[in-house]
Design a binder for these strands. Structure first.
Lengths: 69, 69
DNA sequence: TGGATATGGAAAGTAAACTTTACATAGAGG
DNA sequence: CCTCTATGTAAAGTTTACTTTCCATATCCA
């Protein structure tokens, strides 16, 4: 699962810490998502989509059979 | 978070067990999602969306401030 | 009445998302 | 050079998604 979070966040000109505060998660969670250490929960994916005014599919790119859960 | 899984599955005329096999999860996972016991991972949400040929947003309804994670 | 099928759901365990704390590094500007 | 800010990342702990096993119930049909 890839995502465009770092790019989108930088386009908005905000820090990881600010985005984290808005979404009510930790800065480390944002950093971990941007760097692909894990996938977001579906609830966090919805929050991110709402914040960036995009669909989940426009932010997260699901790659078939990159056999992750 | 609400979803239309039971309705969509029944429209397709398949059993929980069959859907589970296709998505490579357990029958209990499908049952638990249909009955709202927990939310899917984003990967499973993508698999379901692909199977039903819908967007995640068309299957799962995110309700703001129903303070779940 | 009986067995077979489909679903609900609980219990206990594993895996993955997320938190808090902590430290390290790189760049900007004094 | 020093310090401040933004980010990377790791370790340990909690919560939640998911598994396997098990039992209960309802319906269907021979």
């Amino acid at each position: 699962m890839k995502n465009r979070l770092e790019q989108l966040r930088k386009e908005r000109g905000i820090k990881q810490e600010e985005l984290a505060a808005i979404l009510e998660v930790s800065r480390q969670t944002i950093g971990s998502l941007e760097n692909g250490r894990y996938n977001p929960s579906i609830v966090l994916a919805f929050k991110l989509a709402k914040f960036f005014n995009l669909s989940i599919e426009e932010i997260f790119i699901y790659e078939e059979d990159s056999d992750e859960k």
